[in-house]
């Protein structure tokens, strides 16, 4: 039938056109799944370490020299931005891509270094629709195309391997699994 030819044509063209988008949304989708599950932060890498040998000091005694001496010890002198007191017992030293927090009462200090995670950051940037504006419409077009790809995909093959046979079983599983999760986690 002629409609099958058009169906195949549409599926093929959209498949090629949105290959890149499917990879971006698929890979960043996995990343965001694990972000939400708190397994990791896909957009950035954080490294935290204890700073040893910081002696307790009163807020009034904290000077730029004190801060620079602490930075010298941690090897972060060249990354210094400025310091700030979140409260009377804490000192925050801001660095390029990180900071050091100091408990002025106990001397307990921690250095946190942050950097953007390459590739995933870019993919998440798009997946979260951070560019907004025209990207919104291109991403909408991709979403619509995914629906078309799904429909054209299930009706593409005839016979017992198609929607009239094995295909129907797989289709059913793909619909039932999310329904089971909704049933247990949302509806009950």
């Amino acid at each position: 039938m002629k409609w099958r030819k058009w169906n195949r044509w549409l599926h093929r063209k959209l498949g090629y056109l949105f290959f890149g988008m499917a990879i971006i949304y698929g890979a960043s989708g996995i990343a965001l799944n694990h972000h939400i599950a708190r397994h990791w932060n896909p957009s950035m890498v954080e490294r935290s370490e204890q700073v040893q040998g910081v002696t307790p000091v009163a807020r009034e005694e904290v000077t730029k020299e004190y801060v620079m001496e602490l930075l010298e010890r941690t090897g972060e002198k060249d990354h210094y931005k400025q310091y700030y007191f979140p409260n009377d017992t804490s000192l925050m030293i801001y660095l390029d891509k990180g900071h050091i927090t100091v408990n002025l009462q106990s001397g307990e200090s921690r250095l946190l270094k942050i950097r953007n995670r390459k590739v995933f950051r870019e993919m998440n940037f798009l997946h979260y629709n951070k560019p907004k504006q025209l990207w919104t419409y291109f991403a909408d077009l991709f979403g619509l195309s995914m629906i078309i790809l799904a429909i054209t995909g299930i009706i593409m093959v005839r016979g017992k391997k198609g929607i009239g046979g094995q295909g129907a079983i797989l289709l059913g599983i793909g619909i039932i699994v999310p329904l089971i999760f909704l049933l247990f986690y949302l509806w009950v």
Binding site: M44, K81, Q82, Y84, Y94, L95, D96, K97, H99, I114, N116, F125, K130, P131, K132, Q133
Partner: peptide, 15 residues
């Protein structure tokens, strides 16, 4: 706002 994609975390400590 609508025209700013995001604030980069490296802005922390900057004016």
């Amino acid at each position: 706002g609508p025209r700013i994609p995001e604030f980069d975390v490296t802005l922390e400590g900057s004016n």
